[in-house]
Computed example of a mutant assay.
Amino acid sequence: MKCHLTTRRVILFCIISLFTATGIKGQASGPAFKVIAFFTARNDQAHISFVHEANKWFPEIAKQYHFTYDTTSNWHNLNEQFLSQYQVVLFLDTRPDDPAQRAAFKKYMENGGAWMGFHFAGFALTPSDFPQNWNWYHDTFIGAGSYVSNTWRPTAAILRVEDRQHPATKGLPETFKSSPNEWYRWSNDLRKNPDIDILLSIDASSFPLGTGPKQQEIWHSGYYPVVWTNKKYRMMYVNMGHNDIDYEHKTNKTLSFTFANEVQNKLIINSLLWLGGRK
């Protein structure tokens, strides 16, 4: 009888140990990946509104998909030591101007880092406060070159999925209606760049796109990529990221939200999970 009880205790001890070890292993595994979002959130109220919206939306998505989401408006953090803590970098509105920060970001990307940039993160216009003085970033990395023009007012567009095989577009319909946005036109034709994989473009059914009042702010035809990746890097550029704002009545009230669109959100979530190495 004593021997029998001892055997039962040994078995019970083994079972408890197994569950304890499993629990410790699960806790030690931590988040699937870590994201750091850089932002400036100055000057343009539409971009400020988007940044505030993004910094509320992404933490909710991070909880749901088990990754971490941190933010910083201190661009001095764009250095090798700080970036080594993160698997994915987001630029929510602007880009770095300091040569050391630019060099650190380039090294990060060339050594396997991942990046997603929204809307104004791709902007460059000479002369302006954001001149095209970073050839690697605008011509090689993003590939679009300089900003040329945009639609106005911020308007929803019908977007067409160009590459249905990419993980970012999985489960998306052939076409869908976006959130309102200010759409950019670029100096470079991305279709001529073999490194660029265009994932989404503006469908012809969107035209005329924009309401003006200036005629050049209304597009009637043309080909306009809005989401793409560079096959030499783990990156994604998303032209969305400009909320509609009540400038006319000087209330600066947000009239539209980028993340109030289920299909568009699926694209961004898919893209982020792909960048983070998740299926």
Rank of each mutant, 00 (worst) to 15 (best):
F105T: 04
Q165V: 01
P96Y: 13
V148C: 01
E174F: 07
E174D: 15
P154A: 14
Q101F: 11
M109H: 02
M109Q: 13
K106I: 08
R160H: 12
L172K: 03
A114T: 06
Q101A: 15
F91H: 05
G143I: 07
W75V: 00
W136M: 09
A114V: 08
N77D: 14
Q132G: 12
R153M: 13
N135S: 15
G143L: 03
E162A: 10
D93S: 08
L172A: 01
T169C: 09
T175I: 14
R153Y: 12
G113D: 02
F91E: 00
S84R: 04
Q85Y: 14
G122M: 05
W75D: 00
A144Y: 07
L78D: 00
W134S: 08
F176I: 10
H166C: 06
W75T: 00
V161T: 09
F130C: 04
L83H: 08
A144R: 04
N77F: 11
D139L: 03
N135H: 13
L125N: 08
A144D: 09
A121S: 15
K106R: 14
D163G: 09
A157C: 13
P131F: 08
V148W: 01
Q81C: 02
A104K: 00
S146Y: 01
D139N: 12
L90M: 15
D98L: 07
E174M: 13
V89C: 04
V89P: 07
M116D: 02
G112H: 04
F118Y: 14
M116S: 02
F82K: 14
Q132T: 06
R102H: 12
A121V: 10
Y147H: 11
T72Q: 03
E110C: 07
A144W: 03
E80L: 07
N135M: 04
N77P: 04
L172Y: 03
P131W: 10
T140D: 13
D97A: 09
H166K: 07
Y137I: 07
W115Y: 14
T126N: 06
A156H: 09
V161D: 05
V89N: 01
S84I: 05
S73H: 12
S146I: 01
H76A: 11
E110D: 07
D97I: 02
G143F: 03
I142M: 14
N133D: 15
F91A: 02
T72H: 04
A168M: 14
H138M: 11
A124K: 05
K107G: 00
T169G: 05
T72D: 03
W75Y: 15
P173A: 06
G145Y: 07
M116T: 03
F176R: 10
A114E: 03
G171A: 08
S128K: 00
D139E: 15
V161M: 02
E162L: 09
N79H: 05
F105V: 08
Y147F: 15
G112T: 03
P99S: 02
L78H: 00
F120D: 12
K107P: 00
P154L: 11
T151Q: 09
T169A: 08
R95N: 06
Y137M: 13
V161A: 03
I158F: 09
F105C: 04
Q85H: 15
W134P: 11
W152G: 10
P127T: 04
G145E: 12
N111T: 15
Q85T: 11
Q101T: 10
D163M: 08
F130I: 09
N74W: 01
